[in-house]
Amino acid sequence: MITDAAFIAFAVLGIVTLGATLGAVAMRDPVHCGLALALAFCGVGGFYILLGAEFLGFIQLLVYVGAVAVLIMFVILLTRRPDSGQDTNSRGFWSALAGSGVALGVFAVLAVAISRSPSIQTATPADPEASIAAIGRMLVSSHLLPLKMIGVLLTVALIGGVLGAMQEGGKLER
């Protein structure tokens, strides 16, 4: 019955994630979009857990929901202006239609490719071992260099983000 429970979890997660994503994409108010985005990230984290990568699922919640979504919310609130409505372009409807069409086309192409692909194996293998200790060993042994690179990257991004947000016209903002 685990299978059924997994199927129900998958269905619930799918509905929640896709609904939240749709809301994040289509809602008018960016604040609502940001909140929906956070929910969608949670759904994706749920998928990770469902797929057996619990560590990733928690990382996803921690980083995406806890950091990125909150950061986005902050920026949305910072750039919010009462007088400037969003999506006021007169060509908005047609470009929205064109963008949606293209997105739909991409989805169709992907779906067709997924359904026709012969290499996809339909049988479900046994749950792999993805313990935190194994991931930690891998990170400090065979993936050490990428780990350090990520560390450098995060440091650079941190400094850049702080400087960019602080600076205006080459002067430090008081």
């Binding site: 994040a24 986005i72 963008g99 997105a103 991409v106």
Partner: peptide
Amino acid sequence: ALLFALGLAAVLTRRNAIMILI
């Protein structure tokens, strides 16, 4: 794929840089 298509739609249609980032 659906998730990707929705994200793409957001990038292509929203007139808001934050929404594009989303």
